[in-house]
């Protein structure tokens, strides 16, 4: 006898598929409306085209940019500052987080300091960075690392605290060394939190990298935006803003991919795939 569940499953799936298809269509429609508005509003004179050039002109500027070697250098500078800063922050955050997190006394005595330092806006360090490092990459790195370090550290601390006491005791009973317990019990528990931290830090790092370029004048997309703005090249400035937005989307997508890939064994993701 065919069980009702095997009959019901395909219909439910096709309904879900239809829903997803409908959603994607609506999304495309939404984006098209957004683009059409960007073209129509300046053309109709609702906003002066000097301030908001029609989309087609921004598109033209975007095409011009793609042909410039200087633009690709700037993009490379931004990506390099972002990546190096993020990598340093993640390495520091994970190391410090594991050390503090696994030693209760350390956790107790550092909590207040972390709570105090974390909300300090990293932009407060801009003048210091300018004085000490000038417009070098190191200025950018100082800001990026400071801002993203806390995101990672706090998540790692949550993750290490989340370790199942039974699992931890079991490992101890089986005579696992301290290192082996960190490797086989703490690390897998904390990994989802670490990756959440990396995802948050990746977005913050991009914001700070571009901010540093914009305000300090370190080479990169932010600096190009500043130059375009002061030179009155409005369409070019919008084109650069669009590029930073695309970069932001790419960073988000990449971070989510990384999460899926590294956590494919994790129950939360496996459940998602099954249902």
């Amino acid at each position: 006898m065919t069980s009702p569940s095997t009959l019901a499953a395909p219909t439910r799936r096709s309904r879900a598929g239809r829903l997803a298809g409908g959603n994607a269509l609506l999304g495309v429609l939404g984006f098209a409306t957004f683009l059409a508005l960007l073209e129509a509003v300046p053309r109709a004179g609702l906003v002066s085209p000097d301030y908001l050039p029609p989309l087609s002109r921004v598109g033209g500027a975007l095409a011009d940019l793609a042909g410039e070697a200087a633009f690709w250098t700037a993009l490379g500078d931004t990506v390099r500052g972002w990546f190096l800063g993020l990598a340093i922050a993640v390495a520091l955050g994970v190391t410090v987080g594991f050390v503090i997190g696994t030693v209760p006394v350390l956790r107790e005595f550092t909590a207040s300091t972390i709570e105090f330092l974390r909300p300090i806006p990293s932009v407060a360090l801009i003048p210091l960075a300018v004085l000490v490092f000038g417009t070098e990459l190191r200025s950018v790195l100082l800001l990026v690392v400071y801002a993203s370090f806390w995101q990672v550290l706090v998540q790692v601390l949550y993750g290490v605290r989340d370790v199942d006491p039974v699992a931890s005791e079991t490992a101890r009973t089986f005579g696992l060394s301290r290192w082996a317990r960190v490797r086989h019990v703490t690390w897998p528990t904390a990994l989802p939190y670490v990756l959440t931290g990396v995802r948050l830090a990746a977005a913050v790092a991009l914001i700070l990298a571009i901010t540093a370029e914009l305000v300090i004048g370190a080479p990169g997309l932010g600096n190009e935006i500043g130059i375009a703005q002061s030179g009155g090249a409005v369409a070019r400035m919008y084109a650069l803003v669009v590029v930073t937005g695309l970069l932001g989307v790419a960073v988000n997508v990449l971070a989510r991919r990384l999460e899926r890939w590294l956590l494919s064994w994790h129950p939360s993701l496996r459940r998602e795939v099954v249902s």
Binding site: G22, N23, A24, L26, G27, V28, L29, G30, F31, T33, F34, A203, L206, I207, I210, T211, L214, V215, G222, I225, L240, V241, T244, G245, L246, L247, G248, V249, V251, N252
Partner: peptide, 17 residues
């Protein structure tokens, strides 16, 4: 569903620019 892609893009623009 209509707004999601646009919001995803707008939110990804680093606000300082």
């Amino acid at each position: 569903a209509f707004c999601e892609p646009v919001l995803e893009f707008l939110r990804a623009i680093p606000p300082p620019v």
